[in-house]
Amino acid sequence: MQEKILMIGLGAMGSVLARLLQEKGKKVTVWNRSEAKAKPLTAIGAAYTADISKAVAENDIILVCVLDYAATEQVLQGVSLEGKTVVQFSTGTPQDARLMAASLSARGAAYLDGAILATPSQMGAEQTPIFLSGSQEAWTTAGDALRILGGTLIYLGEAPGAASAWDIAALSSMFGMMIGFLNGARIIESEGMQVADLGNMILNVAPVLGQMVKDTADDIQAERYSNPESSLDICLGTFDLMLRLAADNKLDGGFASFGQQLFRKAQDAGYGQERISALMKTLR
């Protein structure tokens, strides 16, 4: 018998998730506080039910994509979840996920926490990554439907907070890189050159940068800090140069100041002649 799927929340992401499922032949019902957002989906065959209790009761897999976990609790307050598989795609922390897993499991649901590492326009592609953690039963039940949403599903086990932790760690890596790039873009602009050329250069050397990150991760895992090819003392000099350039070209020095402060903290702790991985010791 075909599984019945309810999509709760029809913002930019939720609407795309519902559309992908509907287009792949799934039996989809949608629910949103504003019925207007459901009309493009009902136009292609999805059902709409205004009563959230009725919508949940009539479906097997409940996908949630609202503002946050508090909004999820509010929407599902008083709704029977016995025997339902609930997949949470709203934004939250690992602690949010743990609390929700405990709450919904106590109400009879099999709970799976999900974190989508993509924008709405990237959904449905083979390379689209989705982190998932929580109930093995929920993962088994919802897996086929979730593969429609992203071809790279990463199930991280039964600890419900794992997906959120991986998501936030990946976002930290991504936004850290983007802030560094934007700082670099201002340097390029201030010298009368083209930002697009910097973007192309970063694209071309991305495998080298990725390998540096992996090597640093391996060093941290192995507690390997000595015999650096480029010591913390040498790396610190980069931020000193950035600050001099910022002063010369009248640029914002915030990024360089932050990096300088972090590296100096490691230097003051005696790690100046160690690998960049030794920064982890100061962060700990």
Rank of each mutant, 00 (worst) to 15 (best):
M178L: 15
R186T: 08
P207D: 07
A185R: 00
A222D: 11
E189F: 06
G192A: 04
V205L: 06
N204W: 02
N227Y: 09
E191D: 08
N200F: 11
I220Y: 11
G199V: 07
L182D: 11
D218I: 04
P207R: 05
Q221A: 15
I179P: 00
I187M: 06
G210A: 14
F175K: 12
G184P: 05
A185V: 05
S226N: 15
L203E: 15
Q211C: 05
M178R: 01
G176H: 02
Y225L: 14
F181T: 03
Q194H: 10
Y225K: 09
M177P: 02
N204K: 15
F175L: 12
G184F: 01
V208T: 15
I187F: 08
D215I: 09
D215L: 07
G192Y: 02
P207A: 04
A217G: 12
M201S: 10
M201W: 12
N204T: 15
N227A: 08
M177E: 00
M193K: 07
M193E: 07
G176I: 05
N183Q: 10
K214R: 09
L198N: 13
M201F: 15
L209I: 14
F175M: 12
D219P: 11
I188H: 00
I179C: 01
S226L: 12
L203W: 09
M174L: 13
E191S: 00
E189R: 02
L203H: 11
G184R: 02
G180M: 04
A196Q: 08
V195W: 05
N183G: 01
N204S: 12
E189Y: 01
I202Y: 14
T216P: 13
A185Q: 03
F181I: 07
N204F: 08
M174T: 13
I202T: 12
D197P: 01
G210D: 06
E191I: 00
